[in-house]
Design a protein around this nucleic acid. Structure first.
Lengths: 109, 109
DNA sequence: ATCCTATTATAGGACATCCAATAAATCAGA
DNA sequence: TCTGATTTATTGGATGTCCTATAATAGGAT
């Protein structure tokens, strides 16, 4: 069911990483529960993180005060806090300056 | 001495990852030795990987046949193989499609 | 009440990436 | 030759990300 807008990860090298950053990124769009976050990451990165991946990461982000948690019956809604929003923007600047070159050259083709 | 074209990594979330991919990327520009690769990564990502990081990664890439090694006196020159070049381009496509959205929105500001 | 499903969550193991510390090999210069 | 600088390389430990189980919890349907 997941619309794929991304090829699967290559096997040449490890493309893991940036999970917490990416979670902050999708949460900056709107609050979501765990399943929705997984879905969003799946659409973007080509692989959908499983429960054993996503929940420990969310727990850590909460411990750092970057996201807030609100339980609503069966689901749990995660929201960026103010400091989470600031942190995300900073991380975003770093990410784009660290990897921008690759992206720019790719776009030129 | 290292020209910095990148802010230091944020402390909000872990920005590790993509090391092997980034090594393939810089080697696609020109063959380099270990120190030069470290320097190039340092300029781009804001932190320079140490020996204990870079050499195991190079060893692994060599084992996979993605890079070639030529010892020249004191230094060792690393070069992309043909299959390394192909793998790098594939990884590049994946990377850009997985993270392109973040770049695009950042560039729009 | 009882089932079924969705959702959240943890445990345990694998691996890449990171560092500091240590070492060895080579070259250049005194 | 000896000394110091450069470069390569390994070790050992920490952490984040990833999976496959496994489990707990809550809501809806019968």
């Amino acid at each position: 069911m997941a619309e794929r807008c991304c090829p699967p990860p290559p096997d040449c090298c490890d493309m893991r990483g940036m999970l917490s950053f990416y979670i902050l990124w999708v949460l900056s769009k709107k609050p979501m529960n765990g399943q929705e976050i997984s879905e969003e990451l799946g659409k973007r990165r080509g692989t959908k993180p499983t429960a054993g991946t996503i929940y420990p990461a969310l727990k850590e982000l909460r411990k750092k005060g970057l996201i807030e948690v609100e339980r609503k019956g069966r689901t749990t809604s995660y929201t960026l806090t103010k400091s989470g929003k600031i942190a995300m923007e900073k991380a975003c600047r770093y990410f784009c300056s660290a990897f921008g070159e690759i992206f720019h050259e790719y776009e030129e083709k």
